[in-house]
């Protein structure tokens, strides 16, 4: 794939993300065409439609897009720096840490439920540091980090299950957090995620060459004058902020961070100069689309978006993996 094609592909993704945004805002219990949406927003600000669009649909769709952006950027960065296709935000303990601390607030201290987002964000950062520390041995080996991540996640998972076993009556209240949901998003939730998307996303856009160089192996990177440990640490911190803030708002939506980067890589190639910006749009499109489906498919019941993401994403991912792009997928050592 040449760079012209890659630029056009990004442009297509951009256009699709705008369209998806309009479709997402226009669909739900009440359906509205894009024209009607714009008319209502501009000229009909006292109506119920305006309330639905401005106070419910738009913040929710924006948060869905940001969650998609954050998780897919975090995933693509982690897969790059660990040179491992199985790396994802859950690998560095984001889901485990956020899950445990989030559940502690929601189940043990329901009176402080409003602290759950910030708690799960701190839990995500804490778990990342714990795993990083455990994997440290004069330097962090990607394989060690992945194994430490699996072990810590399993330990924290046991904690989650213990909480749910001892407080079965409170489980139904936390279900939305466990499977990831966008149902009760308001404008207020935006501030928990938006700053991280902007800051970390902007920093990442300056670092594609560093990611490309890291893909060549630690020794080659060192030879090219890259400080491997510092760079990897910076990327892990950025991913942790991105994924941690996403999880703090919508709960555990880990699969997006594993799958969207792979889908995007199959579509646009693995040069991070194009892959990083592409992931912004594919991540946003994917979560907005799944959220829309989650609202309309079993009306009037709304399905948690995490279920839709897995139900649609996994087959689509497997289809691409079996196809022409997927056959040669993987980073071979040579």
């Amino acid at each position: 794939m040449n760079s012209r094609k890659q630029k056009i592909t990004i442009l297509v993704f951009f256009t699709l993300s705008i369209l998806t945004f309009l479709v997402s805002v226009g669909n739900g219990a009440v359906q509205m065409s894009p024209v009607k949406i714009i008319k209502t927003l501009l000229f009909d600000q006292g109506s119920t439609s305006y309330q639905i669009i401005w106070n419910v649909r738009i913040p929710r769709t924006i948060v869905a897009a940001l969650v998609g952006i954050n998780l897919s950027l975090a995933g693509v960065v982690l897969q790059g720096i660990m040179r491992n296709p199985l790396a994802s935000p859950s690998t560095i303990g984001v889901s485990a840490g956020a899950g445990l601390v989030g559940l502690i607030f929601l189940i043990l201290f329901p009176q402080y439920y409003y602290l759950a987002p910030i708690g799960s964000f701190l839990g995500a950062l804490g778990a990342t540091m714990l795993i990083y520390g455990l994997a440290w041995n004069g330097g962090v080996m990607p394989t060690r980090m992945i194994l430490a991540g699996v072990a810590v996640s399993s330990l924290f998972g046991a904690g989650n299950n213990a909480l749910m076993t001892f407080y079965p009556d409170r489980v139904s209240g936390v279900l939305n957090f466990m499977v990831g949901g966008l149902a009760s998003i308001t404008w207020g939730d935006l501030k928990l995620i938006f700053p991280y998307t902007i800051i970390c996303g902007t920093i990442l856009m300056f670092l594609p060459t560093r990611l490309n160089v890291l893909m060549l192996g630690d020794e080659v990177s060192t030879g090219l004058g890259l400080n491997v440990e510092k760079t990897r640490f910076l990327f892990i911190i950025l991913s942790s902020f991105l994924a941690g803030s996403a999880v703090s708002v919508v709960g555990l939506l880990g699969f997006v961070g594993l799958m969207v980067p792979h889908i995007t890589r199959i579509l646009i190639g693995s040069d991070h100069k194009y892959l990083l910006p592409a992931c912004i749009f594919t991540g946003a499109i994917f979560v907005m689309l799944c959220d829309t489906i989650s609202r309309v498919i079993f009306q009037p019941t709304e399905v948690p978006v995490g279920i839709i993401i897995s139900a649609i994403g996994a087959p689509f991912f497997l289809y691409l993996l079996k196809g022409k792009g997927g056959l040669s997928y993987g980073h071979k050592r040579k």
Binding site: T209, N212, E219, L224, R333, K334
Partner: peptide
Amino acid sequence: AKKLAVLPQVKSVSNDLLVESLASYGRFP
């Protein structure tokens, strides 16, 4: 890295890396 270049034994490439891109990474330092 501007004075000493290294070609280690263990190297890795993604499955779609082009020769020119690889060569251009030599300008990184």
